Lab assay of single mutants.
Amino acid sequence: NKFNKELGWATWEIFNLPNLNGVQVKAFIDSLRDDPSQSANLLAEAKKLNDAQA
């Protein structure tokens, strides 16, 4: 379904953000699993944090 596809894509993108540490990645992935409907918002937050830590 739509959420599974978005969840998978967001998970892959978060895993590939180079400036996040393992704890941050795990926290974002756990949040995605808790509420897949928020995948776009969580991915945006992860990208912002990644950019801030560059």
Rank of each mutant, 00 (worst) to 15 (best):
S37L: 07
K26F: 05
W12E: 04
I29N: 01
V23D: 12
A44Q: 08
P18F: 09
I14F: 05
L43D: 01
K26E: 05
D34L: 14
V23Q: 13
W12Y: 09
P18A: 07
D51Q: 09
Q24H: 02
G22A: 13
S39C: 14
T11N: 05
A10W: 13
L32S: 01
L43Y: 06
G22I: 12
S37Y: 06
W9P: 06
A52H: 08
L43W: 05
L17T: 01
N1W: 02
V25A: 05
N50W: 02
D51G: 05
L43G: 01
N50K: 01
D51L: 11
L17A: 01
N50S: 09
V23F: 14
V23L: 12
K48L: 08
N1M: 05
K26T: 07
N16M: 10
A52Y: 09
A40N: 07
N1C: 15
S31H: 08
N4V: 08
A40R: 12
A54S: 09
F15T: 09
K2F: 12
K26H: 07
V23E: 13
K48H: 06
A40T: 08
L7S: 06
F28E: 00
L17M: 10
K47Q: 09
K26V: 05
S37A: 09
A54T: 08
E13C: 15
A54N: 09
L32Y: 03
A10M: 10
K26C: 14
A44V: 09
L7D: 07
G22Y: 14
K5A: 12
S37C: 08
G8H: 14
N41D: 07
N19A: 06
V23R: 11
K2Q: 13
V23P: 11
A46E: 00
K2D: 14
A54H: 08
N19E: 03
P36Y: 04
Q53D: 02
N41M: 13
A52N: 07
L43Q: 02
K2M: 12
N4S: 09
V23W: 15
L43M: 04
A10Y: 15
L43E: 01
E6D: 11
P36C: 05
N4W: 15
N4H: 11
Q24M: 03
K2E: 13
S39P: 02
E13Y: 15
Q38C: 10
P36L: 04
P36G: 02
L7R: 03
A44G: 04
N21F: 07
G22H: 13
K47D: 01
W9Y: 11
A52S: 09
I29R: 02
E13L: 14
L42M: 05
I29V: 07
K26Q: 10
S31L: 13
S39E: 06
F3Y: 10
N1K: 09
K47M: 09
S39K: 06
K48M: 11
L7P: 05
Q24S: 01
P18V: 08
K48A: 11
